[in-house]
Design a protein around this nucleic acid. Sequence first.
DNA 1: CCAGATTTTGACAACCATTTTCATTCCGAC
DNA 2: GTCGGAATGAAAATGGTTGTCAAAATCTGG
Lengths: 129, 129
Amino acid sequence: MTTRRDAVHDTLRQSEGFRSAQDVYAEMRLHGAKIGLTTVYRALQALADKGQVDVLRTDDGESVYRACATDTHHHHLVCRQCGRTVEVAGPAVERWAEAVGSEHGFTEITHTVEVFGTCSSCSTQARTG
Amino acid sequence: MTTRRDAVHDTLRQSEGFRSAQDVYAEMRLHGAKIGLTTVYRALQALADKGQVDVLRTDDGESVYRACATDTHHHHLVCRQCGRTVEVAGPAVERWAEAVGSEHGFTEITHTVEVFGTCSSCSTQARTG
DNA sequence: CCAGATTTTGACAACCATTTTCATTCCGAC
DNA sequence: GTCGGAATGAAAATGGTTGTCAAAATCTGG
């Protein structure tokens, strides 16, 4: 039965940005879903393992998840105010990482790249308010 | 009294790669240092705030620290076997991050970039052993 | 439809890195 | 010497995450 997992996945899809397991749990409960925290964690892990959601770590060590549109390799441009996230491709970065790695004799190169900023709406609000 | 902080900094400098607070603490105790875990955490935070050590998060959420040679902005190429770390500059990546950000109307762009791989010694050992 | 095997679920407890608390120690100022 | 503020560290608290285990749901063959 993947009903719960689907429900978690759906909840995640309704969000613009990255959400923590606790967030997802709270939101599902708010919407009347009958689900336990443990199950949310398990569903999230399962989805992450299957590559159906992306995971990253907040500065304070919390794992946050996001259901991304593309299932191909990509990176994220995240607004540090509202969390709005844009998926970006970066062929240049991929090549750079490979080059840097082999240059120093490293093999099996992987990399993590995340870009943070303040999105236009948030910077407008900041100016206005 | 920055004696403790210096001691922590020194311990970090003697390490090739990134070390966790607990690692640093254990190492210092091994070498006979009389210091508490709390102080190690505080020293590490202070050093990180001052930009004298670099911090990053392990996959399992642990904070790891490293005393880097350059105090200018740089990234890391980390061996996922032995932890050996090479500091790398990446002007191309800096430009790319800026471009991606402004392209989507984001301002105050920052980024995190880490490259992981298997270093030559470790891959040799893997073949040999 | 039923009994038994298997999987999923979730309340609760355990974990563990990190932080907070707070009493003590240290050190310079006077 | 001693007053005051900063540093220290043992112990307790915090909080996200994971493990436990029994109950519930689902599947299986009869």
